[in-house]
Design a binder for these strands. Sequence first.
DNA 1: TGGGCTCCATACGGGTCCGTATTGACAGAG
DNA 2: CTCTGTCAATACGGACCCGTATGGAGCCCA
Lengths: 191, 191
Amino acid sequence: MEHGRAATDTRLTRDDWLRAARLALLHAGPEAVAVEPLARDLRVTKGSFYWHFRDRGDLLETLLAEWEVETALLTKALRTADLREALVMISEELDRRNVASERGESPSDAAIFAWAAVDPEVARRANKAERERMRLLRDLTGQPELADLFYYAYHGFLLRRRRVPSAAGDLAIISRLGLALLAPPARPQHK
Amino acid sequence: MEHGRAATDTRLTRDDWLRAARLALLHAGPEAVAVEPLARDLRVTKGSFYWHFRDRGDLLETLLAEWEVETALLTKALRTADLREALVMISEELDRRNVASERGESPSDAAIFAWAAVDPEVARRANKAERERMRLLRDLTGQPELADLFYYAYHGFLLRRRRVPSAAGDLAIISRLGLALLAPPARPQHK
DNA sequence: TGGGCTCCATACGGGTCCGTATTGACAGAG
DNA sequence: CTCTGTCAATACGGACCCGTATGGAGCCCA
């Protein structure tokens, strides 16, 4: 109320641009994160953009950096809980973030890793986060191969979910299988 | 020897362009499948390109179409074998094709599905092939959820393999787990 | 009311790509 | 040796994007 922008205010904030950029990255890839097209979406001219950002590279770097931060937070938070708790927590947190991504409120795992496939510097930094994730999962479960299997399945799920929104529910299936195979309930692990 | 082109011949065939285009699509995405950059790679001018192709859309359509054909061949071939045979056959065939893709000799699953994430028409056609694959796997195994899990894991693997070539061996791990879980050897399925 | 600050519009030059039109090099057939 | 078909070079106009330079428009505060 005090210093916010009214509903009729047409001026944009830096985060308005970031939101539009996140959606473009998720739905059309990094090449679509372009100044003039985004300006058209936002119904302003690029004069606005170059007020909030140094250049296009500044925008892309910001997107990547904020993803790195969020990712590091999650992996760090998981180093406390026990196995079953952690698996449930992972599932819920990933689901929450995927929803936020589709609203442009958060950088998307799916979009970042797809971006990494076509940009060496992004690949370098995504690989770094990935190594920590995989190591965490392996340490947590003590079953490296099964852990990798579920890591891979999560990314395969993200890939499909971008094209087929109705597949969103499959995350729950993967999670259930993960609990059953990685942290078998009462029944003892054979051998 | 008889009618082929000598080693010193600089003239290109349509397939030389396709090979370069497949590699560009795999390593740099669909936006990189551009006439003038490809011409620079091939050390000719685009005068050559417009001899072999109507326009850029013609090239992209050819890449997508040849992938559709190869994919349909594999799914069709699998409708004969029994479960364990089919799983082994899938694993070997996918590995073979992934290697061919990296040589630019074949369109790549990884590249096509990444492309589909940013192009609705490609998504439509990739989804179609995907539905057949998933249905095949479910029918073959009779365990829909586990089948989906491995389908997802395969795609997650492809995604990572593009960035981390040393992960190539993980396909064998996924295959082994697939055999163990989807087609348990002698030991009867509990229940 | 008149600066000063924040944010956007406009206009421009430079770069890259697309697709066409035209000409040129070269090999094989007759 | 010419003629013909195949493939490539050159040159051009148009479209789109980037980044800069500069000039407002509106608000806050003295």
